[in-house]
Design a binder for these strands. Structure first.
Lengths: 371, 371
DNA sequence: CCCCTTGCCGAAACCGGTTTCGGAAGTTTG
DNA sequence: CAAACTTCCGAAACCGGTTTCGGCAAGGGG
């Protein structure tokens, strides 16, 4: 009987000394398990003196309740779930470590842990989520990268599983969230560029399926109008999430009859693509063409000139999301669990007054292609 | 009684429909729980026909065993533990996402999950590890970034908790591991540079507390000797893990009376620091100074010229580590769970034949500082 | 002085599984 | 054809906690 053997072996393996259980603590004190349990969990029908005796004995004996043993009765495994979508390429996510660090920090403080899974496709994420819910591997979930129409949200909502989103969604009913005010950042970016003297300011949005993308475009538009500039749909480029796409999108914008002298990017990585465009077209970032982006990826600091960007504190995001989710699991209404935080401007060298007017820039580009 | 309320609330919250338990399946078939359990777990004392009936009924009813309910008897929570050290700054770890993806992929295939925690200091990691072990949040652990003398290893070894290391350690007793042959990579790097015509080849090691660092130095040394070059201790620079440190270390090497025309780096990030040095000193990477590094960070591709490096497949590492750990937990001896994989050379532009001899390079640098 | 609270804790059920033990059939052996 | 094995499954204990229920003793009110 193989199964029996290995299982017995494992139980022997994992602790050298046998675990100290709640029964051990109880018999040590000459009370019952129930008393120990209630004392440790702060029930009101336990005398203060007893509570003290119990908690001291528990400390002395080194008693640690087994989370999964508690779970079977309480229905809580004290674990937060996180299902990440790791796409093939774009997977190098520098934020991830910080984000996870934030989540686990808050979680650890309250003696919770986090359970992580990954999937490659959107459907994969849904399936994984289902599995984790079915097996109750986590008491609730953090949903990163919220989409405008998000299958995960619907699923969890109907199954009544607590969750909190990193980002907002189209139908906020029953949703808790934490988000960065990307719209404010883009508004500030646009007005900042305008006040530097730019009059043709473009925007390269992020993935259109994401909620944030819409918001940032809106912010950009507001910024323009606040500065007295007219919104020109032609100046909203093709969506770009990668260097390559950013390069292409930038190139297309510069081919406009009246090209922009400044571009706001919804995403740092796309902005770094513009550096390549500039190099190719013999333009200088921060001179002929100014750039402000969003995210705060470390590469931005090493670009030349440094990329001016609105950085998000992903560690803090992780911390807050964990805190919100734990509250949600404990029963707080989702409507009371919504937080927005600002992105912080990191000024580097990529945004400066325009060296050329749009017309001059167009001329300059035309000369080049004639060469 | 507040506690009672919220708990009841949670149980109601998490499943809309009540869970289907093993008892439901049993009564549906008119057998006992024990039969269902043994049938589902492949015990040999269940008739094949019964096994079939049971597993079909389980499917039909949508029965999923509760991992933590099983755990209480079996002692297995079906979860792999991972405690990451997230240092303050260097925390931007691009591998992490891929690594985690690898781990979770293998784990998911076998219906395991992974439990992650983070800490900032070495001691914090130890404490967190202790907590997870005490609460038995995981059945075993993956230990990344193995140190030469590693407290985690000792702790887990004495407590008899299964673990597997990413990297090797000084005392391999009872250890299972997966590692990349960094020594081979560095040997290849040195011989490659030698065959390009370099005669003064330096090495900038990684953190001295890490096992890999020693191994890579050794590989570098072997490579030199294989190429008939003498090992010169002066050409082993100061350890560097960051751009900044890499810059400093490179600078120091170039100040030698007979400076190297090529440098091997134990770590990509440090090599990128050399790009800054080169810019400052008016040298061109791949011309006056050649560079080969190790890791395969994405930034290397965007450097100019691209950084030639030995890339590690961190996704695969994650997959293998998870597989090894699961075997380890199931009882395979650690000695049988040791794997090494090669790093793969990514040729870009940073390594080319030397444009100057060491003497000429020294002269060139002297001229500059006179300016 | 008795009855009724109230405070505090023990006994036992319970959560959802796994595992031990034993026994009723069916099968083989002598 | 009885005795001895097998095969297969039910009954019940068990894992380590939590929670319900009830009861005893002390205290308060009439």
């Amino acid at each position: 009987m193989q199964t029996g053997n290995t299982a017995a072996q494992a139980t022997r393996q994992i602790g050298v000394r046998p675990r100290v259980t709640i029964a051990d603590v109880a018999s040590d004190l000459g009370v019952t398990k129930s008393t120990v349990s209630r004392a440790l969990n702060g029930y009101p029908d336990i005398a203060e003196a007893t509570r003290l005796r119990v908690s001291r004995a528990a400390d002395r004996l080194g008693y640690r309740p087994l989370a999964h043993a508690q779970a079977i009765r309480t229905g809580r495994v004290r674990s937060l779930g996180l299902v990440l979508q790791i796409d093939n390429e774009d997977s190098a996510r520098p934020f991830l470590a910080n984000f996870i660090a934030g989540v686990t920090q808050t979680a650890s403080e309250q003696n919770w842990t986090i359970t992580i899974a990954t999937a490659e496709t959107e459907k994969g994420v849904q399936d994984t989520l289902s599995r984790l819910v079915d097996e109750h591997k986590a008491d609730g979930f953090i949903l990163p990268r919220t989409l405008i129409h998000d299958g995960r949200v619907e699923k969890l909502r109907t199954q009544n599983v607590p969750f909190v989103m990193f980002g907002r969604t189209s139908d906020p009913t029953g949703c808790a969230w934490y988000d960065i005010k990307g719209e404010d950042a883009m508004r500030a970016a646009a007005t900042r560029l305008a006040s530097l003297g730019h009059t043709r300011i473009a925007h390269v949005p992020g993935g259109s399926q994401y909620t944030y993308s819409q918001l940032r475009i809106e912010g950009y538009r507001e910024g323009l109008e606040a500065a007295g500039l007219k919104f020109d749909p032609n100046l909203v480029g093709a969506p770009a999430l990668t260097r390559k796409a950013g390069d292409a999108s930038t190139r297309a914008l510069l081919e406009l009859p009246e090209p922009p002298t400044a571009i706001t990017f919804a995403v740092d990585r796309a902005a770094l693509g513009a550096y390549r465009t500039a190099e190719d077209l013999n333009l200088r970032i921060g001179e002929e063409i100014s750039v402000i982006a969003y995210d705060g990826v470390p590469e931005g600091a090493y670009a030349n000139p440094g990329l001016t960007t609105f950085a998000v504190n992903s560690r803090q995001a992780g911390e807050r999301l964990a805190a919100l989710l734990i509250k949600r699991i404990r029963g707080t209404a989702p409507e009371q669990l919504r937080e927005l935080a600002p992105a912080t401007l990191v000024e580097r060298g990529s945004d400066r007054p325009p060296r050329l007017t749009p017309a001059e820039l167009a001329q300059c580009l035309r000369n080049q292609s004639n060469l």
